[in-house]
Structure formats: structure tokens, C-alpha cells
């Protein structure tokens, strides 16, 4: 797939941390409208990789392109230079992120959290952002919570707010960093059903998760990582019934 067709295009991504190699030679193309789940044992570098996609972590080498546009470094081939902060901030408006521990802004109401970036970064008029915000909250089932403060919500509700916050940016790609890992078991379902809906609607999503049956159900592509490298890329049925590598086998049958 050419770089310009892919929603996300990663080339030669490496990350060193204090001399320790966390990511090595990651090459990946993800098509638009697809859901990709990144699986792997702890310490495999999957979260670090996800955070490189929106340059929250700066890779030591390699490039990331979202919808054909470079992130983090501009220029081509040899003549690349790191992006200025303002440029980086503006590229991030097309990639939204959902964090493991929600990362909601506690001093703003639920609606305030959802409209903050659309109004203050994208410059949308407040009234319009609020209407759209309420519509999104209705989609995730939180209409009555729009005007309360996040601390009053359960974990599952907080994460649904975080997802609404991401959707409000109308992003090209949404990144999910272990969206259900910090939730009590009985709340995992409500978040997964929201993500399932989004997959059905054709959003481009990259999800790092431990929920294997969920990944099997909604993913178009499974990316299996171990030891900082991608070991397998496959369709879910292929991956789960016939893993190609020893590592993948060990992971699936004893996670």
C-alpha cells in the first residue's frame, strides 16, 4: 500500500530508552476505516508504539504518517527536521486518543471536557460544539451526565466520556491505550459495546488491549508484538486459529 493510501503509515520506527531498545524496526500500514488491535505480552512495547503514533513518545528513528501527512518530523527523505511545537499540536488534531486512566480534566464538566478541544483548538463556535457534544454523549448513553463533574462518574462512564471527547474532534484516527484495563470487570462491557459500535460505523481505530475475545470479534487486523518488534500481522481468525510464530502461540494459549 502506498503511503498516501494508508490511514496510518509507519516506517522504520525505533525507540531507545536509556540505552534499552524498546521498539525496533516497526513497519506498518493500516487502511482507513479499519479496526486494528495490537496484542502482546506486557513489556512488548505496544503502548509505547501507540504513543509514538501521535508523538507523545518521540521515536529514536523512523517516521509516522497519518492520512499521508507526517507527524513529529517534517520534510522528506534525508532532510527531515523535528516539528515545532505549534505544528505538532496542529497535526494532533486529526488523531484522537483514549487513555487507560481516562485522563479527564476534573475542573470541567463532562460536556466541558467534550467541547474543550473543539472550541479552543479547532475554533468551533461554542454553541455548535455543545450541540454536537450532547449528541455524541447521547450516542454513548450519557445524556443525563452532560453537566456533572467527572469525579461523580463510575470508571465505565468516565471512559465513555473520554471516548466522546475523542469523537468530538472528528478525527481521522482514534488511538485506544488499553481502554478497559483500569475498569472493574462489570464495567468493561459498556465500554466495549461503545467501541464495537464505532467499529461498525467504520472509524479507523488502533486499539491496544488485553481483551482477546473482543479483539477477535471486532478487529479487521491483529498486530502481534513481542520484545519491541512486530511478530505477526494477520486477520483475527487466522491469528487465533493458526498463529505462525512460537511466541504468538505461547501468548494465545497462555496469556
Amino acid at each position: 500500500m502506498a503511503e498516501t493510501d494508508a490511514a496510518i503509515s509507519v516506517r522504520g520506527l525505533c525507540k531507545d530508552f536509556d540505552g534499552f531498545e524498546v521498539l525496533r524496526d516497526i513497519d506498518l500500514d493500516l487502511a482507513p476505516g479499519t479496526t486494528t488491535c495490537i496484542l502482546g505480552p506486557s513489556g512488548s512495547g505496544k503502548s509505547t508504539f501507540l504513543r509514538c503514533l501521535n508523538w507523545l513518545e518521540e521515536p529514536s528513528a523512523g517516521s509516522v504518517h497519518i492520512d499521508g501527512k507526517p507527524i513529529g518530523r517534517s520534510g522528506n527523505g534525508r532532510a527531515t527536521r523535528p516539528m515545532a511545537r505549534r505544528e505538532l499540536a496542529s497535526t494532533r488534531t486529526s488523531i484522537a486518543m483514549v487513555f487507560q486512566h481516562f485522563a479527564l480534566w476534573p475542573h470541567l464538566t463532562v460536556l466541558g471536557n467534550v467541547t474543550e478541544a473543539p472550541v479552543h483548538v479547532l475554533g468551533r463556535p461554542k454553541r455548535e460544539a455543545e450541540e454536537e457534544g450532547r449528541a455524541i454523549l447521547a450516542r454513548v448513553g450519557l445524556t443525563e451526565k452532560a453537566d456533572v463533574y467527572p469525579h461523580t462518574l463510575s470508571g465505565g462512564q468516565k471512559q465513555r466520556v473520554a471516548i466522546s471527547r475523542a469523537l468530538a474532534m472528528r478525527p481521522k484516527v482514534i488511538l485506544f491505550d488499553e481502554p478497559t484495563s483500569a475498569l472493574d470487570p462489570e464495567m468493561v462491557g459498556e465500554v466495549l459495546s461503545v467501541i464495537r459500535e464505532l467499529a461498525r460505523e467504520g472509524l479507523t481505530m488502533v486499539i491496544v488491549t488485553h481483551e482477546m475475545s473482543f479483539a477477535r470479534e471486532i478487529a479487521d487486523t491483529i498486530v502481534f508484538m513481542d520484545g519491541g518488534r512486530i511478530r505477526e500481522i494477520a486477520a483475527p481468525t487466522d491469528f487465533f486459529t493458526n498463529p505462525q510464530s512460537d511466541r504468538a502461540r505461547r501468548f494465545i494459549f497462555r496469556p
Binding site: 501521535n54 507523545l56 511545537r85 505549534r86 499540536a89 496542529s90 497535526t91 494532533r92 488534531t93 488523531i95 484522537a96 486518543m97 487513555f99 486512566h101 481516562f102 485522563a103 479527564l104 480534566w105 476534573p106 475542573h107 474543550e116 478541544a117 479552543h120 483548538v121 471527547r165 474532534m169
Partner: peptide, 26 residues
Amino acid sequence: APDNIEAAHAFGLSRSLIYRRIILPQ
């Protein structure tokens, strides 16, 4: 909370916006 600030960065808020809208109000 650092994750507040990280989320703000992830959503494209500029440094001055982060101070004005996220840090100072809190």
C-alpha cells in the same frame, strides 16, 4: 495530574492554552 496535561497535549492544545485552560483553573 500529569495525565491531564498529557491528554491536553494529545488533543493538540498549545502550551499557552494548557496553562490557561487546564493548569491555572485547577
